[in-house]
Computed example of a mutant assay.
Amino acid sequence: MAKHAPQYYENLNYFNNQLNHLMSVHGTKQVDLVNALDIPKTTINGYVKGTSLPNMGNLQKLADYFNTLKSDLDLRFKKDADEQIDISPVYNQLTDIRKHKVYSYAKQQLDEQNSNLNEHRSIYLVGSSAAGLPLDYGDLDAELIDLSNIPAKADKAIHIKGDSMEPKIANNSIIFYHEQPTLEIGEIGIFEINGSAVTCKKYYVDYESKKIVLKSINPKYEPMYFNGEQVRILGKVVF
């Protein structure tokens, strides 16, 4: 891809934001990456300042260092991961009898998928989360409950107390989240604060102050700023 193409700069900006975010969260300095990954200082400096994209080898080193996926760092891989599979070229080459078999199987899978959306399944309800100031939650004792319409990617459920995420998330509602250690900017997550409290907020980073910023949807609540070591991402809220 040409360096002056719009897509190149989109990829560059995405990688730079994600790298600086991970470095802030983990308290990582440039020298740490240079020493651990055997990548030249000038190269790391270019990544951090947003003047260059990594080659595939260095991208893999960075992903392994932060224990994340290449697609979480580099938009080029994210688009590959999100790309939809087009079966029409293969389907169109089949005989009519085989096309009928493929259609019947696909219809069966669709019916099963739609049925699963409405059936009950068990999921762990892990205590309560604040939607306001962080709420003390102890050890997040889990209770296995049966609910319907649980999102496919949900790993845990949690009870929301507070109105800071209204109108999207109502006070006293039960929401679901997918357990993961990272979030993209602007995503809604469940966060552990200082190892003793939990809250539900939108995730942002102030790169100038190197602070994690947790924002409410309800405008009456002010954003909360934390050092990276004060916050642990428990997961991404899924709807």
Rank of each mutant, 00 (worst) to 15 (best):
N17M: 12
A130T: 03
T51P: 03
E119G: 01
L117D: 02
S209G: 06
D74P: 03
K3T: 05
D80Y: 12
E184T: 06
E208D: 13
G235P: 00
Y207L: 15
Q230T: 01
E229G: 01
Y8K: 11
E119I: 11
E222F: 05
T43N: 10
Y225Q: 00
A197I: 00
M23I: 11
K168C: 03
Q93A: 08
K215Y: 08
Y137E: 12
L183H: 08
G50P: 06
E229L: 03
R98Q: 14
M23P: 10
V126C: 02
M165C: 07
D141S: 14
G46V: 00
D111W: 01
E166A: 14
P167E: 00
K79P: 03
D141W: 04
A170H: 14
K107G: 01
K29S: 11
L73M: 07
G228E: 06
L214Q: 05
I160L: 10
R76G: 01
V90S: 09
L33C: 11
A36L: 14
I145T: 08
I150N: 05
K153I: 06
Q7L: 14
Y177C: 03
E10T: 13
T182A: 08
A5W: 12
D80G: 03
F191L: 00
I44D: 07
S216W: 02
N118Q: 08
K215M: 13
M165H: 04
I160W: 08
D206K: 09
S129M: 06
R76W: 01
F226G: 00
N35M: 15
L125R: 08
L147I: 10
I212S: 04
L22N: 10
K220T: 12
N92Y: 06
G27N: 15
I145L: 03
N16E: 13
R121L: 13
N13H: 13
A197T: 01
T43H: 07
N55F: 02
N20P: 05
K70L: 05
H120W: 09
G127F: 00
G46C: 04
L69K: 15
L140C: 12
A81G: 01
F77M: 06
K210Q: 15
F239R: 11
F15H: 03
K29C: 04
